[in-house]
Amino acid sequence: MIQLHNVYMSYQGDGAALSNVTLKIAKGEFVFLTGVSGAGKSTLLKLLYGALQPTRGQVVIDGVNVSKLPSSQLPFLRRKVGVVFQDFKLLSNRSVLENVALTLEVLGWGKKDINKRVYHILKQMGLEHKLNSTPLRLSGGEQQRIALARALVNEPKIILADEPTGNLDEESREKVLSILKEANIRGSTVVIATHDRRLIESSHKRLIVLDKGHIVEDSDES
């Protein structure tokens, strides 16, 4: 599902953010990506949803070589990938319903179907009563779950989550993790970038450790 071959990534004027990264993630896998700040976790995720192009090497997502993808085709790749951003990226002037609906509007769904589907996913998140609230009125944990709902609402093939449990209390963290696990059970490939050791240890899933842009540990290969 996800393949990286000798990927090298450097930001202008800086050293390598990723260096010689080769990686395979199979369909339906659940992977944790960890490492200290600046290790290259977020850069790796950005390569996977086409926000960045590698300086060298190949990134292949669901059979599509992202490195050679024309920008006009990028939206169609992104529709297969649900992303949970570290800063949530919720639109403060839109209701919860409208925030989550955005993913489906882009796909051209009809209003009725969108409303049904959004209600369904929010119910799964335990947030159906917040349908008409605006994000700023929600707690951090609730905002995180709305961001999760927006990423999952179209059941993407791949789910990427950047620090999805950062700053969450124990209960919210468990809730978020169980939602991601459920999505994985339904067939989505899940990649989570996190610092949260407890989250990783309690999950018993594949772990990839990055340090200074290199993969220094991959539990799948041990």
């Binding site: 949803y49 926000a51 939206p75 990226k89 882009v106 796909l107």
Partner: peptide, 15 residues
């Protein structure tokens, strides 16, 4: 932010 987000969820330029 809205423009950026729409691009990230797969909206085409035209959309």
């Amino acid at each position: 932010d809205e423009l950026e987000l729409m691009g990230l969820v797969g909206a085409t330029r035209l959309f």
